[in-house]
């Protein structure tokens, strides 16, 4: 079950995603929560947007905002959606809570011409520090949960995701690093240590 706890998740990535998306495009937001990102995209970029969400209360909040939203479990795939019918399919801070991330990304690239994937980077130095020095499961702003009640089951790093793309015939169009020292990340190899989150724009390798 792909459930994330909206109020606890830190959203530095909204602005980034909004800046990436072309005006007037067609957008599908997977795990759209209460529809905050989708509403902003509609308002700022005039997109034709739709959301998929698993939690009924979140859906009701989306409906109250006037959004089009579908109650579904993204782990079951996107069978209600046609091939290449969206310009962007977004999976924001949700990859690590899916049961079948590989299948989910495959489905995203079937339905969307491009996919935008963001996730907490488990190789962030603060996380390494907590595990190395304290010997406890790390807790940060992007990973705020105790080990026993976390929805995050498939944690990964920026480096992992690059390799995943290479192994699965996926082209990375853009990599964006989010974190406290964002501005200082000039070198690609340092991103994996200095970023709290990775944000990737990907497409199927032609």
């Amino acid at each position: 079950m792909a459930r994330k706890i909206e109020s606890l998740v830190f959203h530095a990535d909204y602005e980034k995603i909004i800046s990436i998306i072309e005006p007037n495009s067609k957008v599908l937001d997977l795990g759209c929560g209460t529809g905050e990102l989708l509403s902003r995209l509609i308002r700022i970029k005039n997109v034709k947007g739709r959301g998929v969400e698993i939690d009924e209360n979140n859906i009701i909040q989306c409906i109250a905002k006037g959004l089009s939203v579908f109650q579904g479990n993204i782990d079951e795939g996107l069978k209600e959606y046609q091939d290449q019918s969206y310009d962007y399919v977004i999976l924001n801070q949700t990859l690590q809570v899916t049961h079948k991330p590989q299948f989910v990304i495959k489905e995203m690239l079937r339905v969307g011409k491009k996919a935008i994937v963001s996730f907490p980077n488990f190789a962030y130095w603060e996380i390494r520090k907590q595990l190395f020095f304290h010997g406890t499961m790390p807790k940060t702003k992007t990973l705020p949960f105790e080990w026993y009640d976390t929805p995050n089951i498939k944690l990964l790093t920026i480096k992992d995701f690059r390799k995943f793309c290479k192994d699965n015939g996926i082209t990375i169009m853009q990599e964006i690093y989010i974190g406290a020292r964002e501005n200082t990340i000039k070198l690609r190899f340092l991103a994996n240590i200095l970023s709290t989150e990775g944000l990737f724009v990907i497409t199927k390798t032609a």
Partner: peptide, 21 residues
């Protein structure tokens, strides 16, 4: 119900779907 929603989405219509437990 999902068949209805799917067809409406295929037509780019404004549709939402809730499955109450």
């Amino acid at each position: 119900s999902k068949e209805i929603v799917k067809s409406l989405m295929n037509n780019d219509k404004d549709v939402s779907y809730i499955e109450i437990n």
